[in-house]
Every structure is written in C-alpha cells, then in structure tokens.
Design a protein around this nucleic acid. Sequence first.
DNA 1: TGGTATGTGTAGTATACACTACACGCATGA
DNA 2: TCATGCGTGTAGTGTATACTACACATACCA
Lengths: 117, 117
Amino acid sequence: MSTFGEHVRELREQRRAGDAGFSVRQLAARVGVEPSYLSKIERGQQPPPSEKTILSMAAELGEDPDVLLALAGKVSGELQAVILKRPKLFAELIRQLKDLPDHAVLRIAREVRDGEW
Amino acid sequence: MSTFGEHVRELREQRRAGDAGFSVRQLAARVGVEPSYLSKIERGQQPPPSEKTILSMAAELGEDPDVLLALAGKVSGELQAVILKRPKLFAELIRQLKDLPDHAVLRIAREVRDGEW
DNA sequence: TGGTATGTGTAGTATACACTACACGCATGA
DNA sequence: TCATGCGTGTAGTGTATACTACACATACCA
C-alpha cells in the first residue's frame, strides 16, 4: 500500500496528463493551501493535512474520500458521528466484522440496503 | 445525555458509597493523573482526557470503554484500525446502518457472531 | 531576453492537546 | 491541636497540529 503523499502525487499526475490545471500550484490553490505545503505532503515531508483539506483534495482529484482519509489514518467525522450515537451497538458489530472476508461484509451492506431488515 | 465529566463523577460517587478508595485523589492516582486534573474534568473545566487515560478510567470505574470514549467524542483507536483496513467496505456499511433501529443492528451482530456468515 | 509558470527549500506561527506542580482552605479523628 | 486526607484554584509546560510567507532555481515561450 502506498502512503498518502505518494497516492496524491500519483493521482495528480494522472489528471495532469490530460489537464494542465493539475500542477502543484493550481491544485493547491483550488484546495485552499500553499503550493509548498502540498508539495511537502506529496513527498512525505509533512504528515497528511486536516480532514477538511483531505476532503477538498478528494473532490478535486476524483478519489473516494474514505479511501484518501484512510491513507491519512483518519476515519471521517461523519462516520464517527454515526458510531458515537450508539457506541455499544456499533463497537460490538464492528468487532464481529473485523475478521470477516470482504464478500461477507459486502453482502450484509447490500442486504441492508435492499431493505431486508 | 450527560457529559463526560458528569458521568465520571456519577460513577465515581456510586463506587465511593461502598469503597472509600474512590476519592478524587485515590482514583486519580490509580488512573495515573493529578487529582486537580481529574477534578477539573469531572466539573467540565477541562475537556475529556486522552484515549489512554479514558480507558484507564473505564477499567477503574467498571464502565464500558466504548461508552466512556463516546461521551468524550472519541472512537477507539482499535475500532478505527478495523475500519481503516477496509475503508470503502466499512464506510458503506456504516452509512447503510445509520438509520437502522437498534434491534436490527443487534440482530446482524448476533448472526455474524453465531457464524451464519 | 524578459515574463510567466513550475516545483521546492527555509523559517516561522497560531492554536489545541494533555497534562503537571503546587498551594489553599476545610473537615475529621486521634 | 495537629496530622491526614479531601476537593479544588492558579499557573505553567512540552508537544503536536496545521498551516503560511517568502524566496530560490529552473524551464518554457513569445
């Protein structure tokens, strides 16, 4: 697995191949940070930025916010809020799901979505 | 719902009714913080302490760690680690479960535990 | 060859986090 | 009365977080 910075750099360079607006400077401007800061993040000289900044990056780069947050070692505040409302319930469930294979977890998500509960 | 501090104070005073070892000073000593710090936390003059300290408090007070952490607005690092390993999967699932009633979430946890997956 | 854009280096800053150290006044019991 | 324990007030500390500001060298291109 790549680091947060490496992954961002990769995404940005992919976008840049077809769109010159994805230079460090221009992306930084749209994301709302200084270019040197973004540069350092991409090269791992700075730790990943705040959740707010990561979400802005994800939107600009067309990446899944949860994935980018995860590379930064963060769980989104939105998800945390869901857990915090019913901590016992969700704590127990998540621990149960910890070692379940992907397809099983996915199946539960689908069944819930399809209203079988 | 009570705040973190109020809840801790309540728990401590309950324990104290039958065990003099639950003074602010003695509990603080066992938890590993200064008495004045614990006192301030209980009265809401300080924000909740670190996860480590909260877990120590939960153990001493016989409270569910996830519940105490939740009152502090924190999700345990252990749970976060589970989510961070498969962010897409868990993010999707948790969002699906957001508005599900307690009994339904509980039923899923039980069925997973009982090996029906 | 002068203007513009690029990535990056150095230095500094404001704020929050997570506490400690010590002192004070009150109560109790020997 | 005085040692012990109690809760709490004031002040200060070290570290991390999340950045900004500005300067520099390089490359393109008109």
